[in-house]
Amino acid sequence: MREWIRVFKDGLSIENPLTVLMIGLCATLAVSTQLQGSFFMGIAVIFVLVMSNVLISMFRKFIPDEVRIPIFIVIIAAFVTIVDLFMKAFFPPIYAILGIWIPLIVVNCIILGRAEAFAYTNTVWLSIADGFGMGLGYTILIVVLATFRELFGTGKLMFLGATLISLPSGYKPPGILMLFPGAFILFGLLQALSRKYNEHVTRKAR
């Protein structure tokens, strides 16, 4: 169990997929313009990541080394399509927000990266921890990024049609925050912050 918690925590801090491993950035910067979209994107990524990690670690002894990548991709693509169809059928308002980004989870390097670097060489139990840790690490980062971008880029924060916070009407939102340059700058700042936090974590661990 201690090992499980350690693997889980690594995904959140010292092995965070976004700020430390720096994988899956493309879709992250693109989606993080809206809080609600980012939140559900995070949920979808957690689901696909945990499921693909479980399946790949379960069958890792039967997957030949030479063809592991095509097999990983088929498994991941299948789960993403399942999420896509289920969202379309049962959560149309959320699908309307995420729509085109869902299929892109297939090529999100976090999922393939974890399949290759973790699930393929570890037990099912630990792979679940890795899936949840990495998925949650991703979700937290993208939600923080989106909160900043939406609040200061549009002047208000929406969630499922309800306005959570809105800035005074005198505030003129800088458009750059909604575009990629703003995303990069903000992401750099977040990364610096998380480095600081991770230093603190590793010092405590020693």
Partner: peptide
């Protein structure tokens, strides 16, 4: 090698077909 990829694809296709059957009407 060939069989492992084929089997994976077949299982994935079956899974997707089942999901599609459940969700298509909705």
């Amino acid at each position: 090698l060939i069989m492992s990829v084929v089997v994976t694809c077949l299982v994935a296709a079956a899974g997707l077909a089942a999901t599609y059957a459940v969700t298509a009407d909705r």
